[in-house]
Design a binder for these strands. Sequence first.
DNA 1: AACAATTGTTGTCGTCAACAACAATATTTC
DNA 2: GAAATATTGTTGTTGACGACAACAATTGTT
Lengths: 172, 172
Amino acid sequence: MSNRAAQPALKTPVSANGKRGGNGKARDQEQNIEIGLDGLVGHAGYAVRRFQIWIFQDFIRTLAAVDIKPTQYSVLTVIGANPGLSQMAVAKRLGIERARLVHLLDSLEDRKLVRRVQSRTDRRSHALHLTARGEASLRQFKLLAAEHERHVAEKIGAENREQLLRILAPFT
Amino acid sequence: MSNRAAQPALKTPVSANGKRGGNGKARDQEQNIEIGLDGLVGHAGYAVRRFQIWIFQDFIRTLAAVDIKPTQYSVLTVIGANPGLSQMAVAKRLGIERARLVHLLDSLEDRKLVRRVQSRTDRRSHALHLTARGEASLRQFKLLAAEHERHVAEKIGAENREQLLRILAPFT
DNA sequence: AACAATTGTTGTCGTCAACAACAATATTTC
DNA sequence: GAAATATTGTTGTTGACGACAACAATTGTT
């Protein structure tokens, strides 16, 4: 080793390799050898993190043709189901910051899926609506999202998916 | 409105407010009014994302005194259970990029919890080991992590937590 | 009228995943 | 055994994201 800046690597240049070195001369593919997780199994957070990465990747892949990411989909869905909401209300409902929602809506408005209409009752806030194009698009997105959901069911089993939705319902 | 740069807001300055505007003159606290999620309920990804945010925040809060984040904990746990692993093997096992593991190990090595020992069989790679201090610290971290796990059980129920671990076991 | 709170916006900071490029080293192939 | 190829650790860049802080415009409160 010791490439460009090798100081950290050379900090402890000596000492034994330790027993059970996974990559001894028997280099029968280290990645296939069982690497125990020890205390990590039994940790809900680790499993949930790995699962969340997988599920988001599948969502993005399944909706790649329409270029819609999970967060964008959630924003469109909430606006579609509750037209006229303010940005503040949408941000609170979805648990995203209003500062971040600004950019999300900028993008969706550029794509003519959402409109910011000035509210007559509160001149500070915007009433959010789907455009006609937005409503038509959302219908298509929902079909693709349903396909993604089928992927989830195939991956973990339909019954397990149902249980998972039931267990995590309080967080939605 | 129209604050500093109000172009996007003024793009569509006119048009009706739309029917069913959630925030009519009856401003009885918009945030308390039920905001439907429509298609979002029934989406595993959304529930998992919200849950994952909650569980990571609790982990970080519970281990704030020792300043250990979930990823750092996972790295320490795997090295502790499999001393001598290469960085590549750890990265693959935990599903993190080797580029990112470099910084994680830099930090852990600065804190004298981990050592990079040069492998004698492959001079490119490092054999990762916990220091004596690292092993002692990890024992303490595991106690705190177990406390965090109890928080999870309180939040979703012990039986639900068990089911969740069983359902998501394939992803660990 | 004076003061505090809210809404949308902009900006910064730190974390993280996904790449690309590179030097050193190991492995394969002729 | 030399040349081509692959791997390992490292550095850097990019973009998505959460957490803040500051601000102008507006609303609500006293």
